[in-house]
Nucleic acid binder design. Structure first.
Length: 755
DNA sequence: GGATTGTGTATTTTT
DNA sequence: TACACAATCC
């Protein structure tokens, strides 16, 4: 655990030197050049599927094994915990021992590590808490309220977004340039930002952005410290460099400022997080930032077949702002990329499900199959269809474990126990379950706390000794404070797991969910059990909290044979044999909203997203679009995505279901005037009551709308999607139906026919 | 202090 | 349509 590697040419070192050749074997010339490049700035432009992670980890191992740096002298940063974990595993596999001591982790984790050691230099105490998105928003809300602004006009969410943006760019309140001020809150944005930061300091807390921003303040404000870190980190390695924001870039540049021994790996064509503050400019500008930088391109793709690669390359080649790479493969050409046009989102889901079943019958694995969509709402149609045909699937994304309300509530309890002055956590659970401490009591507490400049809990403690509050509230408060004191006394005595159980029990939190009869209550109780189990892995409760704030992950699912459904963003870094890219329609993909907000730049990012999606596929790629889609229960018809036009024709084949080639639908879709008429190439048009009926896919059936009164309660009906059912209640044209297979649902009468 | 009704909104989300 | 939140009533 010393973190020291035995290096040298004798003893254990000789064994390592003997293996040196082995870890370089199997690398192609470019990969090998990247791994063994001498000290100095190095940019590795690694196209999709070209062995990026392998190069990065092998280079790290190479640096250690050749003695250029010892583990604690290496800083390696990633964006996700997953990537960090993978890197640790692979490096350990390469060097054959633990890499303890290495500074390897996410930007944020490395930021915290530095900040904990020097918290007082930026006005924090070492035990500071890290706020998540939820806390941030509530804090912002308080700031807006304190400034007497209209909360509806200037929502907290927007303020958080603005502050986040400034932090991503490395601006402290006094550094925000005038042009960036904007008109939020009548130009008071900076004032609010300042108030927000002051409040964070009094709470002894940081938000995610601060983890890096304070890091910058730390390094720029303390030259000795900077010099110390510059000497310490003899090698810096960065993964996914195209996703770095300005703050991260500045942080890296400071740390690498001495020796400039920095390796950045990335792919400008896969930059899809600009809306999160990522600056493609960082990677495009690397050679100017680090003069004399070596640039190595990895262009040999080991993942996809020829047609897939060529189709993806053809699309991305339309982007103007990029380094430019020419991916190639020695693999087989494989199948053509298939393009299918469907009538509506339901037919699209049906089509995909059919294709997956056929693939499975031919021996394909579901785990090797993914359906990738642009926006979350698109998953629904697929889920419904997959359930109907019994196709096992999982939706990746969704609410993550540590973001679920019950988990956050439980953690808020733990936080108050560990950090009594954590006001945000206390506010979250002070009246949960209900214990008679309502809004008016809370208001009084807040006022008192602010006046005395103490924390909420301290104010509550003081107030519970006076008779300022109504007896009811006062008693509840006395009781709560005593309970928290008791738990806190048990911190050192009980194991974290026992304590966690005690807290959830004695607070009445578990009981609250047990008493609740909503359908998701059992699931929530299950999650709480999972949480307690997770606590077990840690020596102390505070230790657990530190982990939670930085690692937001879903519980690992059993590795069953499942189809994966997820967003294109979520798919970055993954690969599958068989990939479906659904919903390629103007307006949806590329997203009209993105284009409205970001113009050409945004369109290029959408195109990169298309590229990312396409390059996820190893053997088979199917792109689909629907002529009609129901959005908020309104039918709208759309035009195929321009990205479909951009697919090189020689690498694709149109499936017959494409409406543009179908005589019955083609007349309106293929109609040039129709396309010309639409101002933004995306237009919507209501198609009232037009609907396809299961099993009669080729017939466009139109039925009358609003048959109110035509049905009677108790009547047996048939619905094309949910099957047979009985009408329980009628409300205008909405029927409340108990379906035999799908349970109780409210549906519009026009979709229902008498059985 | 708590339940109920009404209103506005609706991408992507590594930490 | 659905859901979350806020104003409103009891």
């Amino acid at each position: 655990m010393s973190g020291q590697l035995a290096l040298g040419m004798s003893g254990p070192g000789a064994r390592i030197a003997g293996e040196a050749a082995s870890y370089l074997q199997g690398l192609n010339p470019e990969q090998r050049a990247a791994v063994t490049a001498e000290d100095g700035p190095l940019l590795v432009l690694a196209g999709a599927g070209t062995g990026k992670t392998r190069v990065l980890t092998t280079r790290l191992a190479h640096i250690l094994l050749t003695g250029r740096a010892r583990p604690h002298e290496v800083l390696a940063v990633t964006f996700t915990n997953k990537a960090a974990r993978e890197m640790v595993e692979r490096v350990e596999g390469l060097i054959g021992r633990s890499v303890a001591g290495l500074w390897l982790g996410t930007f944020h984790a490395m930021g915290v590590r530095m900040l904990r050691a020097h918290a007082e230099l930026v006005g924090l105490k070492p035990g500071f808490t890290i706020l998540d998105a939820d806390d941030q928003e509530r804090l912002a809300k308080q700031i807006i309220q304190a400034a007497a602004l209209d909360e509806r006009r200037w929502p907290a969410r927007a303020l958080v977004a603005i502050i986040q943006r400034w932090k991503d760019r490395g601006y402290r309140p006094d550094q925000v340039p005038a042009v960036e001020v904007g008109d939020f809150a009548l130009g008071k944005g900076i004032e609010l930002y300042r108030a927000y930061q002051e409040r964070l300091l009094t709470l002894n807390a940081c938000d995610f952005g601060d983890l890096l921003l304070h890091g910058l303040t730390l390094l720029t404000g303390n030259p000795d410290l900077l010099a110390q870190y510059q000497r310490r980190f003899k090698a810096i390695l960065v993964d996914e460099y195209q996703d770095t924001n300005v703050a991260q870039y500045l942080w890296l540049r400071l740390l690498a400022g001495g020796h400039k021994n920095i390796t950045c790996v990335g792919d400008d064509d896969q930059s899809i997080y600009s809306w999160r503050g990522a600056e493609v400019g960082n990677i495009l500008r690397f050679e100017q930032d680090f003069p004399g930088a070596a640039v190595i391109r990895l262009e040999r793709n080991y993942r996809s077949t020829g047609h897939i690669l060529a189709a993806a390359s053809g699309v991305i080649a339309r982007n103007r702002h990029r380094h430019g790479k020419t991916l190639w493969t020695e693999g087989e050409a494989g199948e053509l990329v298939r393009v299918a046009g469907l009538w509506d989102d339901e037919e699209e889901a049906r089509f995909v499900a059919d294709e997956i079943e056929a693939w499975q019958r031919r021996g394909g694995k579901l785990t090797e199959t993914a359906v990738l969509v642009r926006a979350g709402f698109q998953t629904r149609a697929f889920e419904e269809r997959f359930i109907q045909v019994g196709l096992p699937y999982r939706v990746v994304g969704g609410p993550r474990f540590y973001e679920r309300a019950e988990i956050r509530d439980a953690i808020a309890y733990f936080r108050v126990v560990c950090q009594p002055d954590d006001d945000l956590a206390l506010e979250r659970i002070i009246n949960l379950p209900r214990r008679g401490i309502g809004e008016s009591t809370l208001k009084a507490l807040r006022t008192a706390a602010r006046a005395a400049e103490v924390s909420l809990l301290q104010a509550a403690r003081a107030m519970s000794q006076t008779d300022e509050l109504p007896t009811r509230a006062r008693n509840a408060l006395v009781e709560l404070i005593a309970t928290f004191d008791r738990w806190r006394a048990e911190l050192g005595e009980k194991s974290p797991r026992e304590l966690a159980e005690t807290i959830l029990d004695e607070s009445g939190y578990t009981a609250m969910w047990k008493a609740e009869h909503s359908p998701d209550a059992p699931g929530r109780l299950e999650n709480l059990k999972e949480l307690v189990k997770a606590v077990q892995e840690f020596d102390t409760l505070p230790g657990f909290l530190e982990h939670v704030s930085l690692v937001v992950e879903n519980a690992t699912e059993p590795d069953a044979d499942l189809v994966t459904i997820m967003t294109l963003h979520g798919a970055k870094g993954l690969e599958f044999d068989n990939v479906f890219l659904a919903g390629w329609e103007e307006g949806l993909f590329p997203s009209q909203r993105a284009i409205d907000e970001g113009g050409t730049k945004a369109l290029e990012e959408e195109r990169r997203l298309a590229y990312v999606g396409m390059t996820r596929a190893r053997r088979r790629l199917t792109i689909s679009f629907a002529a009609n889609r129901r959005i908020y229960n309104q039918w709208s018809s759309s035009v195929p995505s321009r990205f479909i036009d951009e697919l090189p024709p020689e690498h694709i084949e149109h499936l017959h279901r494409n409406p543009a080639t179908r005589p019955d639908l083609g007349s309106f879709l293929d109609d040039e005037p129709f396309r010309a008429r639409s101002t933004s190439r995306f237009r919507t048009q209501r198609v009232e009551g037009a609907k396809l009926i299961e099993g009669r896919a080729e017939i466009l059936q139109t039925r009358p709308v609003g048959r109110s009164g035509a049905f009677k309660t108790g009547e047996r009906i048939f619905h094309p999607k949910f099957g047979y059912g009985r009408i329980e209640a009628i409300d205008g044209n909405k029927l409340d139906i108990a379906f035999e297979k799908s349970g109780r649902k409210k549906v519009i009468d026009s979709f229902v026919e008498p059985a």
